[in-house]
């Protein structure tokens, strides 16, 4: 973040950090009055050393190892013969791998798009101050987020079984023509699994946006009302711009969640029927634990990491770019 112009925030007490002003916190000590830094101040580094050590041992070292193994045909035991780029090439040449990547595109819509839209809508509805029972709604709607994947799957498998409540209800309402083999169809199962993912992610997005709405100054809403803005206009003119930061967080996390989609799909279809719901993470698992080709699994992991980083950078760029504009 570039620093803001200091003369704007010049007070009688001296230079004050802009964040303190924005948050309404009492002015901090003047920068001008700070003691001069010692030449070799190692204490801060010593304080963070334990965290850095843990970070290095449990994240950086495995990351570097994983990247190294992605260029080998290591089977998980013993030596790791050099394989060059073959693991990466096979990701693009293997039809099942390509299908997994294509399915991720569909899942992004369900894991990121749908929960964000639904979360925004719900947060706008129940986020208005003074609304009664907001705590109850918030708890109920957030509940799927705290359920374990296994519980989620048990619920949905029961609901979506061929003779389950969903098909029975459709039949009872005279909508029998809509009945489907929801979790056993080559054409719709991936979408259904995506919807289950949406249901899980929705609560998180909603809660994030609710928190964001609480932080939007009430004066802005008052001003909108004075100007005669309708609730819809108020949403687009005040709420939505005020939630840009939260949207960036929600989009980043949910898109990464789509890239890493595994548990729900594995527990229901294991990538089936056929290969219609395979994902990169399922392919990674099969490479590592079924094919005993850890090198290929590592390559898939690196591709997933790279894709996640790119998506994060793009989202941050978009949001920060607009913020700075």
């Amino acid at each position: 973040m570039p620093s803001t112009a200091p003369d704007v925030l010049l007070t009688d007490a001296g230079l004050v950090r802009p964040a303190s002003v924005a948050a309404g916190i009492a002015p901090g000590p003047a920068v001008a009055s700070r003691p001069r830094r010692r030449k070799t101040d190692l204490w801060p580094y010593l304080y963070v050393l334990p965290v850095l050590a843990v970070f290095g041992v449990f994240l950086l070292v495995p990351l570097v190892q994983g990247i190294w193994y992605s260029f080998t045909s290591w089977d998980g035991i013993g030596p790791a013969p050099w394989a060059g780029l073959s693991n990466y090439i096979s990701i693009w040449t293997n039809p099942v791998m390509r299908e997994g990547l294509a399915n991720t595109g569909v899942l992004v819509l369900f894991y990121a798009g749908a929960p964000i839209v639904a979360g925004l809508f719900t947060a706008a509805l129940i986020g208005r101050r003074g609304m009664r029972g907001m705590g109850f709604y918030r708890t109920v709607l957030f509940l799927p987020q705290v359920l374990s994947s296994v519980v989620v799957i048990v619920i949905w498998r029961l609901l979506l079984a061929p003779a389950g409540p969903v098909n029975q209800s459709l039949g009872a309402m005279g909508l029998g023509f809509l009945r489907a083999d929801w979790l056993g169809s080559f054409s719709i199962t991936l979408d259904v699994l995506g919807l289950i993912g949406s249901w899980v992610a929705f609560g998180f997005c909603m809660l994030l946006f609710l928190a964001g709405i609480q932080a939007i100054p009430t004066e802005l809403y008052d001003a909108a009302k004075v100007d005669g803005a309708s609730p819809v206009r108020e949403f687009f003119a005040v709420t939505l711009p005020g939630l840009r930061g939260q949207m960036a967080v929600a989009m980043t996390l949910s898109v990464i969640g789509a890239f890493q989609a595994f548990d729900i799909i594995w527990l229901v279809t294991q990538g089936g029927p056929g290969t219609s719901s395979v994902t990169p993470a399922i392919n990674l698992y099969n490479d590592a634990f079924v094919s005993q080709n850890v090198g290929a699994a590592a390559a898939m992991g690196v591709v997933m990491l790279g894709a996640s980083l790119v998506v994060t950078l793009v989202i941050v760029r978009l949001v920060e770019g607009r913020r700075n504009a």
């Binding site: 056929g274 290969t275 094919s291």
Partner: peptide, 18 residues
């Protein structure tokens, strides 16, 4: 190593007539 996975996936396609 992978025959079970291959068979299971192809088996679903076989039964579905695909």
């Amino acid at each position: 190593l992978t025959m079970l996975t291959t068979l299971e996936r192809a088996g679903q396609s076989l039964v579905a007539g695909r």
